[in-house]
């Protein structure tokens, strides 16, 4: 279990992580979600003892990371796939890590096999593609067969095949009952893999709840109605408890199921040119929630609500 308590990191005048408190329960996959620059990486680095917190604590099974002996057997992390020496072979990279935690040498071959790098184990890691480096990073995280795993943006920059592979791999880790904390700036990605979400923006905690709750709470379905008698119809729907937001010659209706809207229109004899259910996208919800807390926001208006917002991969956080 990971417990983060009042964790704060201040760089000069910038507060990167602001009084963050959350728990990662054992046996769950928790998505650590936030826009780029929200402080996800900094938080993970503090959990792992790489960065010293300004205030607060991060405990792994009740101990700070710096107190752990043989930490690789307790918690495995993949923060940056590029943390490898380009002229050292993948095998040698894993060998020094195994030696540092007194893990048997045979384990190196096992994890190489697990991530499918056995063929290229003797190759220098500098020749690896990003996808292969990511696999090597996973291999080092799994070296000590830890119960807790931490991944920072594991699919960032990968091609679709690589993304699929990582996603499947994470699911299999979760199925083995391991605890996984994985960060991402893509809610759609997390919706596929995470049971719980910890959402932050500008270093502050925005939400910590189950993924299902988060999605149902933050996405609303609306019905788009187009009709020549829109004004009459709108009044009728409002009398039946719906919220109607006019949008040109159409309107989006909230609070009534689509079937009932159709029946009400038929009963009133109103002509319908369009009646369509619209599911708010996850990305929209995420942007709505974190919108105020995006650090480097632009002046552009947010994407039109009808078009599902396409998440643009931001700069890779290091």
């Amino acid at each position: 279990m990971i417990e983060v308590n009042g964790l704060t990191k201040v760089y000069g005048r910038t507060v990167a992580v602001d009084d963050l408190t959350f728990r990662v329960e054992p046996g769950t996959v928790t998505g650590f979600l936030g826009p780029n620059g929200a402080g996800k990486s900094t938080t993970m680095r503090m959990i792992l003892g790489l960065d010293n917190p300004t205030r607060g604590t991060a405990l792994i099974d009740g101990q700070p990371y710096s107190q752990l002996r043989r930490p690789l057997t307790k918690i495995g992390a993949l923060l940056d796939a590029n943390w490898i020496h380009p002229n050292r072979s993948a095998r040698a990279h894993l060998q020094f890590l195994a030696a540092s935690n007194k893990l048997p040498r045979a384990r190196v071959g096992e994890v190489l096999d697990l991530v499918g790098l056995t063929q290229v184990g003797k190759k220098n890691a500098g020749q690896f593609s990003l996808g292969m480096k990511q696999r090597l990073g996973l291999a080092s995280a799994l070296l000590g067969d830890p119960q807790v795993l931490l991944f920072d943006e594991p699919v960032n920059g990968l091609d679709p095949e690589g993304i699929h592979w990582i996603r499947t791999f994470m699911k299999s880790l979760a199925a083995q009952g391991r605890t996984v904390l994985v960060s991402s700036h893509l809610l759609s990605e997390m919706a596929l893999t995470a049971d719980h979400l910890v959402v932050i923006g500008r270093g502050k905690l925005i939400a910590a709840m189950s993924t299902a709750d988060f999605i149902s709470r933050s996405t609303e379905s609306t019905v788009r109605v187009r009709s020549p008698q829109l004004a009459d119809l709108a009044a009728l729907l409002q009398r039946n408890g719906a919220t109607v937001v006019p949008d040109g010659e159409a309107a989006s209706v909230r609070g009534l199921p689509i079937e009932q809207i159709g029946e009400l229109a038929a009963g009133a004899g109103a002509v319908l040119h369009e009646l369509a259910s619209q599911q708010g996208s996850l990305e929209e919800a995420f942007m709505q929630i974190t919108g105020e807390s995006v650090e480097y926001s632009t002046d552009r208006p947010p994407a039109a609500p009808t078009a599902p917002a396409v998440p643009t991969p931001g700069p890779v956080t290091r």
């Binding site: 940056d80 590029n82 943390w83």
Partner: peptide, 18 residues
């Protein structure tokens, strides 16, 4: 310095936090 250049110092500190 190559450990800092390539980030392996961090990999090392993850394995040996002391």
């Amino acid at each position: 310095t190559t450990e800092y250049r390539f980030g392996t110092i961090r990999t090392t500190f993850l394995a040996v936090p002391q």
